Computed example of a mutant assay.
Amino acid sequence: MTRILHLDSSARTGISGIDAHGSHTRRLSARFVARFVARRRETIDEITVVHRDLGAAPPAPVTGDWIRAAFTRPGERDESMHAVLAPSDALVDELLAADIVVAGVPMYNFGPPAQFKAYIDNIVRVGRTFGFDRARAGEPYWPMLAGQGKRLVLLSSRGDYGYDTPRLADRNHVESSIATAFAYIGIEHVHCVAIEYDEFGDARLAASIAAAERAVDELVDRLVAETGHGTAIGRGRDVVDA
């Protein structure tokens, strides 16, 4: 069985090309999931998809009570602590069950939307996705999801252009910050595709959308072929700047 966790985080509810003022990242994430499901079913492989709309229903931000509960040993937590961590536990459970995480994450002011940052804060959990032992020799922290072959497909959109080039790379805090957080918990296979020129709204945007859609299709075909043969994707990042 292949299990996909489909995350959308755009504040825009529609899909570009279909709905007025629709989201480019929702367009790419929906395309990836639909193509992956169709291609995988050609191999008669069972596949499940869990969709969580972080844009429509953002996770609650971390609070002082959340931190106190998360850093209290599970056996020592009271009912209020379990209650405050329950939404986070649900998000972590979804992540643990997934083989592929498909995340639509637009660039807002050079970084991911606040709702996606809240998601990261809820799934980077001591004792659940990373370990910590101050008495451990060498490195006291370790990723608990390492070696499981999980993959992150990060689909973004940007108003300007050149965020993967020297022109604006130093201002791009979307892919780098998300990849860092996911690598910290053990998910190091990251594949990135982005649409640019959104604020220009001209032929350059149309060309960027077309290039991104081709890149998504090619990525799906490659992942289906490799996972179908039980081949692990190499570590590191694949970046397609469309």
Rank of each mutant, 00 (worst) to 15 (best):
R171K: 14
D164Q: 04
A194I: 10
I187E: 09
K150M: 04
Y163P: 09
E196P: 06
D202V: 07
A146V: 11
R158Y: 10
P143D: 00
I195A: 09
I178R: 07
S176Q: 12
A183K: 10
T165F: 05
I209M: 12
I195T: 15
D133Q: 01
L145W: 00
E213C: 07
D198Q: 14
D198M: 15
A210R: 15
V193Q: 09
E196V: 07
A179P: 01
R151L: 12
M144G: 06
D164G: 03
A179L: 03
E139S: 15
G138R: 04
Y197A: 13
Y197W: 12
A179C: 06
L154H: 11
R214E: 12
G131T: 06
S156C: 13
N172M: 13
L152R: 01
A207H: 08
A206S: 11
F130K: 00
S177P: 03
E213P: 09
L168G: 03
E196K: 06
A183S: 14
Q148I: 09
A183R: 15
A207K: 08
E213T: 12
P140A: 02
I187F: 05
I178N: 05
E175K: 11
R214T: 15
L145H: 03
Y163K: 01
A183V: 10
E196C: 09
G149D: 06
R167K: 14
S156D: 12
G131S: 10
G147E: 09
Y141F: 14
D164R: 01
L155V: 06
G131Q: 12
Y161Q: 06
A203F: 00
T129M: 08
Y161M: 00
G159M: 04
V190W: 03
I178W: 02
M144D: 08
L168V: 12
F132I: 04
I178G: 02
M144H: 05
R204V: 09
A210V: 10
I187L: 07
S157K: 12
R214Q: 15
G159L: 02
D170C: 05
L152D: 03
G147V: 01
V153E: 01
Y141Q: 05
E188R: 15
A183N: 10
R204H: 15
R158M: 12
L205M: 15
D164L: 05
A181L: 06
Y184G: 06
A179T: 15
D164E: 09
S208N: 12
D198P: 01
A135I: 04
S177M: 07
F132H: 10
G149M: 00
I209G: 13
L168D: 07
G186V: 11
N172L: 03
F182G: 08
S176D: 13
A206D: 15
A194V: 14
A194R: 14
S157G: 09
S176M: 06
D170N: 10
G149T: 05
A203M: 11
V153K: 00
S157N: 08
A206M: 06
F130S: 02
